[in-house]
Amino acid sequence: MKKTSKDYMYVGIQFILFAVYIIPVTIITFTSGTVFNIIGIILLALGALMGLVSIIQLNKNLSPFPTPISGGKLIETGLYKYIRHPIYTGILSTLLGYGLYSGSVYKILITMTLLVLFFHKSKYEEKKLSLVFSEYPEYMKKTGRFFPKAL
C-alpha cells in the first residue's frame, strides 16, 4: 500500500513531540515524592519492556508509518493477542513514567498530547489495516486499542 501525506504528517508530528519531550523545561514541575517516584519507575520499566517486546514481535512488519508495509502480515499473537497497538502503549507508559518520576508537568502534558496523536494515528492505521486484512475488523472486536479489553 502506498504511503500518503497523512502517513508523513502523523510520523512527523510524533517525532516533533519526541524532540519537544526531551527539552529540559523546568518551569512547570511538582515535587514527586516517593509514591510518584515508584509509580514512575514501574511505568517506565513496564513501558520500555512492552515496547521492546512489541517491536520484536512485529519483526519485519515494523514501520513508523500507519500504512501497512507491502507484503506484511497481521500479527495476532504475543502482546498483539490482547492489544492492537502495544508499541504506542509502551511509549506512552515510558514517557508518563519518566514524567511522574521527574515531577515534570511539562513532560506529562507532552505525553497526553502524544496520546491524542496516537489515538488518531491508530484510527487511520486501522482503516488501512482493514483494507489489507479482511480479518482485521474481527480482530478489533476481540482486542483493545491501547489496553486489553475487559472480560
Results as ranks from 00 to 15, higher is better:
68 P>K: 09
141 K>D: 04
136 Y>L: 09
102 S>Y: 13
92 L>G: 02
119 F>W: 08
80 Y>I: 03
86 P>V: 00
105 V>A: 13
92 L>T: 01
109 L>Q: 03
74 L>A: 03
93 S>L: 13
141 K>N: 08
111 T>I: 02
92 L>S: 02
73 K>R: 13
58 L>K: 01
89 T>M: 02
133 F>W: 11
57 Q>N: 11
136 Y>N: 09
74 L>F: 00
95 L>N: 07
64 P>F: 07
88 Y>A: 03
106 Y>L: 05
138 E>G: 08
65 F>R: 01
128 K>I: 11
139 Y>T: 02
109 L>G: 11
94 T>M: 15
80 Y>S: 06
93 S>R: 01
102 S>N: 15
95 L>S: 05
113 T>R: 06
119 F>R: 05
92 L>M: 11
78 G>V: 06
85 H>V: 03
69 I>D: 08
129 L>V: 07
73 K>I: 03
124 Y>C: 01
111 T>F: 02
69 I>T: 14
74 L>Y: 02
86 P>Q: 02
130 S>P: 15
79 L>K: 03
117 L>Q: 05
126 E>H: 04
137 P>N: 08
111 T>P: 13
66 P>E: 05
131 L>I: 06
63 S>E: 07
60 K>T: 14
137 P>I: 06
100 L>F: 14
131 L>A: 12
81 K>T: 00
144 G>P: 12
57 Q>M: 07
90 G>F: 03
102 S>W: 09
112 M>E: 04
71 G>S: 11
64 P>D: 10
84 R>Q: 09
103 G>E: 04
99 G>R: 15
102 S>G: 08
118 F>V: 02
69 I>E: 13
114 L>H: 11
130 S>M: 12
144 G>F: 07
71 G>H: 09
125 E>V: 00
144 G>M: 04
112 M>H: 05
118 F>Q: 09
63 S>H: 10
77 T>W: 03
128 K>R: 14
125 E>R: 00
88 Y>I: 00
135 E>S: 14
81 K>F: 08
101 Y>W: 15
100 L>G: 04
144 G>T: 12
70 S>R: 10
120 H>G: 06
94 T>G: 14
109 L>D: 04
135 E>I: 08
139 Y>N: 05
69 I>Q: 12
127 K>S: 12
82 Y>F: 13
98 Y>G: 06
130 S>K: 09
121 K>A: 00
78 G>S: 10
86 P>L: 00
69 I>P: 14
